[in-house]
Nucleic acid binder design. Structure first.
Lengths: 340, 340
DNA sequence: TTTGATTTTTTAAACGTATAAAATACAATA
DNA sequence: TATTGTATTTTATACGTTTAAAAAATCAAA
């Protein structure tokens, strides 16, 4: 005795009216469609009584819209991304959209799968932090006129909307701050990925050093979520070998966290001698001792801009030139970057 | 000039055959349905050529199945849950299901929204870590014969399938281990939530102490993700006030992490005097210094059991008595729980 | 060249909703 | 009374699939 979920038809039959009428009332179009007050009341009462839940799959098929957006980032548990995600979720809710979150882990194959999974299920829009090599899938979405907004990094030569920050300036400013604090031997620890935002950060670091006549000292770690211990080994060796380093600029917040652990392991007192600054802020940094300085991305503004673009694309399917938004971050100076 | 995505009909028209034939080939039923080899080849070639992607919304409406499962946990960024999630995702993929992850944040309202969101979109099954107060929605799903498997904690008086661990035994064993290591004044720091697994852990702690004639010393922190600093204040005060404590048993891995930071802040050397053990393991624990002992849940087995139950429910919609699986965890002893 | 058997392909309906267009009811007007 | 207008409700179709059942095509035997 399998209980079938009631459909509009069942309700219509029970009340001896047409499905159209029920549908109008259900969608709050009763008045507009001039359904009589009594009938509206009757239908509403019945809907409530049986606790009717519409079949959104059927609705989506009919309307062509799922009212679902996808937010795909490198790692949703990274507080930088999850903060943006939370704001996006709020704005979406207010506009009657739901948001699905997922992590690409910077893996192309996985990202492709996710994009297809959601596109075939007709989600209405994508907000994506694109991993390297994903150009083709993004183009595919674009060709099919699916709203896409890139975030955190753009894809060169691709005419897509994006919201990013000025990575070069941010990195230059951060490095300059360390120089201003009196550090003279500033290392840069980054990820060995061919992504434009990483190149920009590196370039900003080098530019600041050159202006002051210092020379760069860079360590590149392979990006590999599954092998954190090995990255930590690399960082450790690097620090131990370069005894003259008096400050380190980490290119991402998770690198900083790994780095701090390494520093602690090498020598619990070492942290008090090194100047530290991180690209991207993290909750962790104001809890650590010493508190850690960071170049923070404008989380609120990014989320707002992303959703502004997304909502406008959802509204007018025909689109003009892509919006290319480049925001400035702010340097948050805490204890770790002050000369001791 | 909006480009419509091609449908089965379009393909059928282009090839001058019926949609049925196309559908059979698309679903690999060509041979079975005795479509001629040449026609199969022709259709397949065309499908590939236009890079056809079926509309899964339409398919779901027709078949009544989305082949999507939902994995709802307290916090997907907690490594305990994300490890289980990863295995579940693997098994699901092999069985042609996709998995959506989401965090309830232990919030009833949010969980209700999520359950409705997904149920109305006809997902095929739910694996849920139920927050307190969610009984009604779970019952609702059960009544509608939606496959649900609870995990991490059960709901008393609810006839649902679940996979949990023996929290009482785990806590007792962990406490006993501290006693065996020579600690005499063991505190228990837990979350002030009316959840059965928390009660069991507390009871296990108390039972072990009583057997050895020690008396319990318990701190309960309110569960509140948004207010981590305040919990840390509470822990800090508790430790500072109870100078005689020589060991602490934390009821969850995130409490342990907060706790470790507090201990470090109070006195960098304090960690070397205290015995520490955590319920639930974490990646963090083997990186910390000292490495942290934990009572680890059998992540692999839990995931396997969860999926075994889920897949069987998905197969035979009619179900007999619920599967109630209670697993044993294992004590992972590391440096932090050895007497110094 | 008809019959039957077999192979191959198509017709038609269904899933549950939304909505344009048509239909009905009812009152007011001429 | 017939006509027009307005208010209310329904009919019919579409969205893109899947699939039972019917139909057509092919071939072998009689």
């Amino acid at each position: 005795m399998k209980k079938k979920r009631p459909s509009l038809k069942d309700i219509a039959d029970a009340l001896n009216i047409s499905t159209t009428t029920v549908s109008f009332v259900l969608n709050g179009k009763g008045e507009e469609k001039k359904i009589s007050k009594e009938l509206i009341a009757k239908v509403e009462a019945h809907l409530k009584e049986i606790n009717y839940k519409p079949n959104l799959v059927a609705r989506s098929l009919r309307t062509g819209s799922t009212r679902v957006l996808v937010f795909m980032v490198e790692d949703i548990s990274n507080s930088h991304f999850s903060k943006v995600g939370r704001i996006i979720e709020d704005i979406s809710y207010k506009n009657d959209y739901r948001v699905l979150f997922c992590s690409t882990e910077n893996d192309v194959k996985r990202t492709q799968d996710l994009i297809h999974l959601f596109h075939e299920r007709q989600v209405d829009g994508f907000i994506i932090v694109p991993p390297p090599g994903i150009e083709k899938e993004i183009s595919y979405l674009l060709e099919n006129e699916v709203p896409v907004v890139l975030f955190d990094r753009k894809i060169p030569d691709l005419e897509a909307d994006y919201v990013i920050i000025n990575n070069f300036e941010g990195a230059k400013q951060s490095t300059q701050h360390l120089i201003d604090s009196g550090y003279k031997n500033i290392a840069f620890i980054t990820i060995d990925l061919d992504q434009i935002q990483m190149h920009d950060r590196e370039a900003g670091y080098i530019a600041a050093l050159e202006e002051s006549g210092f020379s760069p000292n860079i360590l590149k770690i392979p990006y590999d979520t599954s092998n954190i211990p090995s990255s930590r080994e690399k960082i450790k060796k690097f620090i131990e070998k370069n005894k003259d380093i008096d400050a380190i600029f980490f290119a991402t917040n998770y690198l900083s966290q790994s780095g701090l652990k390494c520093i602690h392991q090498i020598d619990a007192k070492l942290i008090n001698k090194l100047g530290i600054i991180s690209f991207d802020d993290s909750n962790f940094f104001e809890m650590y001792s010493p508190t850690v300085s960071a170049f923070a991305q404008p989380v609120d503004e990014m989320a707002n801009q992303l959703m502004k673009i997304m909502l406008s694309k959802l509204k007018n399917k025909e689109q003009g030139v892509p919006s290319k938004v480049v925001l400035d971050g702010t340097l948050v100076t805490r204890e770790s970057s002050l000369k001791k």
